[in-house]
Amino acid sequence: MNIVVCIKQVPDAAEVKINPETGTLIREGVPSIINPYDMHAIEAAVQIKEKTSGKVTAITMGPPQAETALRDAISLGVDEAILLTDKAFAGSDTLATSYTLSKTIEKLSPDIIICGKQAIDGDTAQVGPEVAEFLNIPHVAYVRKIEDIGEKSIRVQRLMEEGYDVVESTLPVLLTVVKELNEPRLPSLKGKMAAKKAEIKKWTAADIGADEKDVGLKGSPTQVKNIFAPEPKKDRQMLEGTPEEQTDALIKKLMELKCL
């Protein structure tokens, strides 16, 4: 199986703070990690490779420092890595990102493409399915289990709000995965040594044959007007006492406010 994993480097959410004046993320000094859902995508890809043999290629679009995320992916068992880095890619929304990733994937002609269900910074969950649309291949989102992989088809479980669906698809297919799928492994020493030496390919818009008007800010219909942290609601009151006393106080309050 030839597998491509799409990953994203994100700020470590546990360490992120918001600038109260501008409402934007303070990125300085915040460690970068591989998007946690993408860790499950990498694990899934490496497990498939270990079972069926083949190759796993990780791709990411980002600034030059995103190379560290790709090296981390290699330490976890990924074979090759491509960094899509070009000033023309700056300011991409999900549509431009998906276009750029799909142009790259076309060159790699994989059997399976795996993405995390969403990135923890943007939280859109759009890029995976959009890539599949650009490539004109089927996709299954929120995969929680891979039941079977055949020569030309795959059967997976898709997590739903209540229970799950069993979905069968032809290959090539794009999967987005949830954390229930597996437990990502820790890196291995051999992997870490390989990661240190590995050559990370750097591809530009020209290398993937992307149309300049479809990438970066130019290719992005989404315009960010304002980012702000919502005001915490201040007029709240905690009710205390036994459950009976609290219920009485609540009813009294609701009647005062003419809600009852």
Binding site: R185, P187, S188, L189, K190, G191
Partner: peptide
């Protein structure tokens, strides 16, 4: 199992026998 997967058991074993 985690130590095995991380190659920790191969640390002091020569490379010709699969170690580090």
């Amino acid at each position: 199992k985690v130590l095995a997967q991380s190659d920790m058991f191969g640390l002091f074993i020569p490379e010709e026998y699969g170690g580090l």
